[in-house]
Amino acid sequence: MDTTTYGLDIAKRVFQMYWVEPETGEIMNRRFSRQQLIEFLGQRVAGRVALEACGSAHWWARKIAALGHEVILLHAKFIRPFVQNNKTDAADARAICIAAQQPGMRFVAPKTADQQATLALHRLRSLLVKSRTMQVNQLRGLLYEFGVVLTAGRVAGLADVRERLHEVEQVVPGTLFDALRDQLQLIDRIDGDIKKLEKQLATWQRQESACKKIAGIPGIGPLTATALVATIGNPAAFKSGRELAAYLGLVPRQTGTGGKVRLGGISKRGDNYIRMLLIHGARAVLFKSKNKGPWCDQILLRRPVNVATVALANKMARTAWALLAHDQTYQHDYAAMRQAA
C-alpha cells in the first residue's frame, strides 16, 4: 500500500488537511481544531504529513512525528505556485500536498527543542542589542541638542558621558537630566541582560560537541558556532558544503537564458542573521588575524575586499559542514598535510 501524503495548513486554532484516501481514491479536505487534529492523526496509519515551514511548524513536526508519521517541511515559496485561484485554507492544504509529492522538491529539516531554544536566545540577544543601540543613539542626539558632544563609539561614548555628568547637569535642564540618568541605568540593565544571554549560549556551546568541532575554525566564535549548529541541525540534510552555503545565501545569484548563464552578486537567501555573523567573522580574520594563511592573502590580492570577505565566509560555512558531516575536528594546516601526503 502506498503511503498516504497529507497536506496540512496550520494556524493558531484552525487547521486544514488535504489527502486522498488510498482505498477509495476519495479526495478529502477537512478542517480540524487543535485537539481534533491530534486525535485524528493518532488514529491514522503512519503516513507523510507535509507542512509549510512557518510559525510553530517545528513544534508540530515533533508532535506529529511522535504519533508515528513522517513529517516534511516545505518553504512557503515552493508551495505558492501550486495554489490555484484564490488563497484559502483549503487551497493552501491542497497546494502543500501537491508540492510535497513533486520530484526533486527540497525540504526543511525539523529542529529539535534545544536547537529552537538556542536560536530563540540569539533572537532575544539581537533585539536587546538593537534596543541598546537605539538608546545610546538617542542619548547622544539629545545631548547634542544642548551642545554636549560625546566621544565616538558606544563604549567610549558611555564612559565619556558618565565622566562628564557634572558638566551635563549644568547644561541640561533638571527635568531632562533626571530622565537622561534613568536612560543610562536602562542601558546598564540591557547590557546585563545581553551578558546573561551570552553566558547561556556559552554554556550550551561547551556542552554541545558539534559546537566544539567548529569553534576552532578562524572567524567562528561562540555566537556563530551556536547559531550555525542550531540552524544546520542534522548535517545530512545538506548534500554538500556548497548546498549549505547556498542555503545561507553566500553563493552568486545566477540568471541564464539561451544557454548562457550570468553570475551576479550573492543571492542573500536564507537566514540573514547567520550570514551576518559569518561575514563579520570573516572580516575579523582578514583584518585582525596575524596568521590568516596564504589563501586569504592570495584572494585579497586578486579580489576586492568585500568579495574576499564573502568568499571567506563561504569557505567557513563549507568547512563547518565538512567537520560536522564527517565528524572531524578542525586542523589549521589540513591543506598542507594533504599536499604532502
Rank of each mutant, 00 (worst) to 15 (best):
T3R: 09
L8E: 00
L8F: 01
D9Y: 00
F15A: 00
F15H: 00
W19M: 03
E21N: 15
E23S: 10
E23F: 08
E23H: 09
I27L: 12
M28G: 04
F32I: 07
Q36S: 13
E39K: 12
V45R: 14
A53M: 02
A61C: 09
R62P: 05
I64H: 01
L67Q: 05
H69T: 01
V71Y: 03
L74F: 08
F78T: 12
F78K: 11
P81H: 01
P81Y: 01
N86L: 12
D89T: 07
A90S: 13
A90K: 14
A91M: 04
I96T: 02
A99W: 10
G104M: 06
G104L: 03
D114P: 02
D114C: 09
D114A: 14
Q116A: 03
T118F: 11
A120P: 04
L124T: 15
R125L: 03
K130S: 13
K130Y: 10
S131T: 15
S131W: 05
V149F: 11
R154G: 04
A159H: 13
D160N: 09
H166C: 11
V168K: 07
E169L: 10
Q170Y: 14
V172I: 13
V172C: 08
P173F: 08
L176E: 06
L176S: 07
Q185Y: 12
I190D: 01
I190F: 03
D191C: 11
D193P: 07
I194Y: 12
E198V: 06
A202N: 12
W204A: 11
Q205L: 14
Q207L: 14
E208N: 15
A210F: 03
C211G: 06
I214Y: 00
I214W: 01
G219P: 02
V229R: 00
P235T: 11
S240W: 05
R242F: 08
Y247C: 12
L248T: 03
V251A: 06
V251N: 05
T255Q: 15
G256Y: 08
G259T: 08
R262N: 10
R262W: 12
K268C: 11
K268H: 13
N272V: 13
N272G: 12
M276D: 10
I279R: 03
I279Q: 02
G281Q: 03
A282F: 05
K290V: 11
N291Y: 03
K292L: 13
R303E: 11
V305A: 15
V307Q: 09
T309E: 14
N314M: 09
A320K: 01
A320S: 10
Q331Y: 07
H332K: 14
D333A: 09
A335S: 07
A335N: 09
A340K: 10
